[in-house]
Amino acid sequence: MKILLVGATGSIGEVAYEELKDDAEIIQASRNSSEYPVDITSEESIRALFEKVGQVDGIICAAGSAHFATVDELTPEQNMIAVNSKQLGQVNVVLIGLHYLRDNGSITLTTGVLMDDPLKTASSSAMANGGVSAFVKSAAIEMPRGIRINHVSPSMLEKSKEKYGKLFQGFEPVSSKRIGLAYRKSVFGAQTGQAYKVY
């Protein structure tokens, strides 16, 4: 099984890679990759990546950025960071990647706890996560060729507590293993249109 992992060098991407690396050939793509570079805000970059990689059995996208600011400080330009990256970037990975995905393949996108459990300064991120979640639920009913699509919605990783703990006050950090298993379920399971919430 050949899986393309977009966002492989991020904290969530690393978790997905560690969980799946022994059971599949994982192609690690990221913005800073020398072998498989990709910028998900650019359709051309996404297309170039798939042209280089070729046919795959699974696509995981764990990439996407957002600007954090209170609503009264957030500008339309800052909000577009999440729209173009976290939301449309992931959707475009699906729309372009479908043509390189083998029959009965799987697509797994990444959202996050903020769409369900809001924090101050996180409305733009929550908006993008919610948009991706709605897209997955709707797209699942019309996926061709037996292809499945799901999303994993993780909370703050245990290993990220030192960096993000002050922002996520009162949130229980989640183990890498639990988040990794959600990606495993999406890739190797049979469900589609699911939100695998790891909170």
Rank of each mutant, 00 (worst) to 15 (best):
K2A: 02
K2I: 04
G7E: 01
G7N: 01
G10Q: 05
G10W: 01
E14T: 14
V15P: 07
A16R: 13
A16S: 12
Y17I: 03
E19Q: 15
D22K: 15
D22S: 11
D23W: 03
A24E: 03
E25C: 03
I27Y: 07
R31Q: 15
R31C: 04
N32V: 09
E35W: 01
Y36R: 10
P37M: 01
E43T: 08
E43N: 15
I46Y: 06
I46L: 06
A48P: 03
F50N: 02
I59C: 04
C61P: 13
A62M: 04
A63D: 06
S65E: 10
H67C: 13
F68R: 12
A69K: 09
V71A: 11
D72N: 11
E73M: 12
E73Y: 06
P76Q: 04
P76L: 05
E77A: 14
E77N: 08
E77K: 15
N79H: 10
N79P: 02
N79G: 14
N79L: 11
V83T: 13
N84I: 08
K86F: 12
G89Y: 00
Q90A: 03
Q90G: 00
V91T: 14
V94G: 07
I96V: 11
Y100D: 08
D103Q: 12
S106P: 03
S106I: 07
I107W: 00
T111Q: 02
V113W: 10
D117Q: 15
P118G: 06
K120E: 15
S123H: 14
S124Q: 00
S124T: 07
A126R: 10
A126D: 11
A128T: 08
G130R: 08
G130F: 09
G131D: 04
V132I: 13
S133W: 02
S133V: 12
A134R: 10
F135A: 06
S138V: 05
S138F: 03
A139I: 06
A140V: 01
A140R: 08
A140T: 08
A140D: 13
A140G: 05
A140K: 10
I141N: 14
I141D: 08
G146T: 06
R148S: 07
N150Q: 05
S153A: 15
S153H: 06
S153R: 01
M156S: 00
L157N: 11
L157T: 05
E158I: 09
K161F: 13
E162P: 04
E162D: 12
K163Q: 14
K163E: 12
Y164H: 10
Y164M: 08
Y164V: 06
F168G: 01
Q169W: 05
Q169P: 10
Q169N: 15
P173D: 03
I179Y: 05
I179V: 13
A182I: 00
Y183V: 08
Y183E: 11
Y183C: 06
S186D: 00
V187W: 00
V187Q: 05
F188Q: 03
G189I: 09
A190W: 09
A190N: 14
A190C: 05
Q191W: 09
Q191S: 09
G193P: 03
Q194R: 13
